[in-house]
């Protein structure tokens, strides 16, 4: 397919790579703060894919851009909420990871 590596797709490709990196960190680590960081990296990757694919040669599509800008703020708020919950968890149990049923 021609144009696969054209300039405007560079954001989408970076987003795909970031998503993969974040997924690796999310599965490989057990510390909940590391997992939260990895999850945020995955989220940034998803945002980049959305923004990068919003241009298809017919002009920039503002709808995904609007979704991403609200998504970033919501992601920051949910990260803060996750940290509040993690701190309560650490205080209640003294553990930095979640019990797993294996």
């Amino acid at each position: 397919m021609s144009g696969a590596l054209s300039g405007y797709l560079v954001f989408a490709w970076s987003g795909v790579l970031l998503f993969g990196l974040g997924l690796f960190g999310f599965v490989a680590h057990r510390h909940i703060v590391r997992r939260l960081l990895a999850f945020n990296i995955m989220g940034s990757g998803a945002f980049l894919v959305l923004v990068g694919l919003a241009q298809d040669g017919r002009g920039v599509d503002p709808v995904p851009h609007a979704m991403v800008i609200t998504g970033i703020v919501v992601a920051v708020a949910s990260t803060a909420l996750a940290l509040v919950v993690f701190r309560r968890w650490y205080r209640a149990s003294g553990r930095t990871d979640l019990p797993e049923d294996t």
């Binding site: 795909v16 993969g20 997924l23 690796f24 999310f26 894919v49 694919l53 002009g59």
Partner: peptide
């Protein structure tokens, strides 16, 4: 984790390559 990450990245990359053209011209 490495295998999962490689698989998902490859699938995502393929999806970006082979994405369909949007039917609706939103811009």
């Amino acid at each position: 984790a490495g295998l999962l990450c490689l698989g998902v990245t490859a699938a995502l990359g393929w999806a970006v390559l082979e994405r369909p053209m949007p039917v609706e011209n939103l811009p």
